[in-house]
Write a protein that binds this DNA or RNA. Structure first.
Lengths: 261, 261
DNA sequence: AGATTAAGTTTCACATAATGGAACCACTAG
DNA sequence: CTAGTGGTTCCATTATGTGAAACTTAATCT
């Protein structure tokens, strides 16, 4: 299962190892990793040692397993604060969530995948990391399609090669062709729908967040369930969502990090 | 100053660069980094290139600045889920927060610093990453002292060398000696206080979370303000907090990640 | 303009640091 | 005792990272 050889030398390889550990989603043994990595035993071993030393991984003595380390959590806090739209967009999202009473997602594109960076739900309190940091498929989520529709062709093509086109529900657009024609429609109307394409009963309306120079910064979606509302009702909110997206884009534009000298 | 030379070869150095970028807390220019790093220009340059390639950093063309990349957010999500107490402790913390109406923090020790991995406040909704991932000093926070008090001497000594002992408030224990005698007391009574040692007006009562074999897994604290409650009132809750901490410890003990083969 | 400095990028001979086959160790099972 | 499994260490070979210096822009000054 192609963990493709990386071109970034030693550091790249070490980071691949990190990803391998992350991919399992649970603590993993040396031999498990060895089995699926192209690295020889000694090499993999050294990487694990180094990463553990660096607190990028933690080693559980008792069980002999490696897991992602807490240093990542620390770094991510800063990453999230300084290179995601979330801190900037917070107040706008809050407002939208309260007014609509529906769940709002803020997402960005990361290597062809949708990365959720924030989530707000007027009713239930936020579930910390359980949503921020989560990734999802781009081809069958509202936010994913909204972003793809407004990205340059070249970037879209590249992203398409990374999609699995797994068919989650009968509504899933499971071929590049279907998806591309949908993107046309989205581009025309300015917002995307998720018509239970990812999960049955879950629908959403999403709009892209686009910078003044036309770059897709992220996307915003309002999510609900089929037994609470309808697509038409969500579409009625599209203008409101678009408005919020625009305000976020403007905020992002004018935002300068405070210069300190 | 003093980004100590790391012994973990190329990978370690690259990760140091990541930390340097993180330390600024804002996007940073090549020359800024160069100024404060021991690396020669070309070397630093290559690291930045590599890390950017790997999406560990993002490069802002327009401003010529580097910031932590989104890949970290993704990794952190997994890290948080698989190697922090947070997912496990969630329900217990929720309960404690609701019952007490006060803010509850869950923290772990990371390289001599307190790393907050979760936070719950019965009143106001959670602020996502703004608390999880945040770090604080060990020597002047309730959770920090609670953990230190029950760690093996050797580990405490190591941690002490990493403390700045900056004097935040008149109450701050600003020498290793003062701290050590405080740790004695904490060990005896089983819980630690923060008597406005970090921030004026902020007090808390914290207890360690200790595994069956005596290892400190983390700490739990109940935080409030001097004009809402008193230390005595908080101490009255100590039993309740301890109870929760024990239940979390038990849960952590019996928890096995699902085996898949 | 032309000269001057600063900021960022590329080059290349050199030495360090990564590599990985093989040997080794510690268990466990037969 | 022997074979097997899972993990760790060695070490000669060489790929990789290193960093001084040269180079390219892009501002700033005279």
């Amino acid at each position: 299962m192609g963990q493709e050889a990386n071109s970034d030398g030693t550091v790249g390889k070490a980071l691949d190892v990190l990803d391998m550990v992350a991919a399992r989603g649970k603590p993993v043994r040396f031999s498990d990793l060895l089995a699926q990595s192209a690295f020889p035993k000694a090499t993999l071993y050294r990487f694990l040692q180094t990463l553990t030393n660096q607190s990028m991984l933690t080693y559980d003595e008792d069980r002999g397993t490696y897991a992602l380390g807490v240093r990542l959590v620390r770094l991510a806090h800063t990453a999230w604060a300084q290179s995601s739209l979330a801190p900037l967009a917070r107040s706008y999202i809050d407002e939208l969530a309260v007014e609509s009473g529906e769940t709002i997602h803020l997402a960005q594109m990361d290597q062809g995948q949708v990365l959720y960076v924030d989530k707000r739900n007027a009713a239930t309190p936020v579930e910390m990391f359980s949503s921020a940091g989560k990734v999802g498929p781009a081809y069958c989520t509202g936010v994913g399609k909204a972003m793809l529709a407004f990205m340059p062709d070249e970037a879209v093509e590249k992203a398409l090669t990374r999609q699995s086109f797994h068919c989650f529900t009968p509504q899933t657009l499971d071929t590049p062709a279907k998806l591309k024609s949908e993107l046309q429609v989205i581009r025309a109307q300015g917002h995307a729908f998720d018509r239970e394409e990812h999960e049955p009963g879950i629908i959403c309306c999403a709009v892209p967040i686009i910078s003044r120079v036309g770059r897709v910064l992220g996307a915003l979606s309002m999510t609900s369930t089929t037994h609470r509302t309808t697509l038409d009702a969500l579409e009625a909110q599209a203008g409101r969502i678009k408005d919020t997206a625009e305000r976020i884009a403007t905020a992002a534009e004018s935002w300068r990090f405070p210069e300190q000298d």
